[in-house]
Amino acid sequence: MKEFKIVKEPIEIQHVIDQVVDPNCGAISTFIGTVREMTKEKKTLYLEYDAYVPMAEKELKRIGDEIKEKWPDSKVAITHRIGRLEITDVAVVIAVSTPHRAAAFEASRYAIERIKEIVPIWKKEHWENGEMWIGDQLEQHSYRDGKPKMEDEND
């Protein structure tokens, strides 16, 4: 089983966790990203995710490598789902194991923030009165500085 992958089917959360189990770890932290219905006053009906799959899997692995460098003796697995997702569906699962708990919490937070910066995955919001690929609002998500930057932490 691949530790870093993009899938079209519902994510088996336990399978992601199983990949980071290690006799030397004392903590496994998981992050589960789900589809939210209300964003401020706007009601989402469903989301559609697209990805540049081979590159997205490479960039997920890059995040795993960064984590292993920052938090030695850690193990990382990340699965992101694409296609149509309904409200409450799981879009991404991150599992990190480390010898001690503090690093596991920090590293899983790091992973989700990096996903929002560098991994070529896009979501399209479908509302009652329209639809839009998120990230195409030029002013809010500009790449004019030549590299991806952190999205709003509340996304």
Partner: peptide
């Protein structure tokens, strides 16, 4: 922009056989 699945810069040059991907601001997670 990515050339052959690696991020590239505006001054980079793609050659025959390469694959260029245009990557709009990402919104995964």
């Amino acid at each position: 922009v990515a050339i052959n699945e690696e991020y590239a810069g505006d001054n980079d040059i793609a050659e025959s056989g390469d694959t260029i991907a245009f990557i709009p601001p990402v919104s995964g997670g």
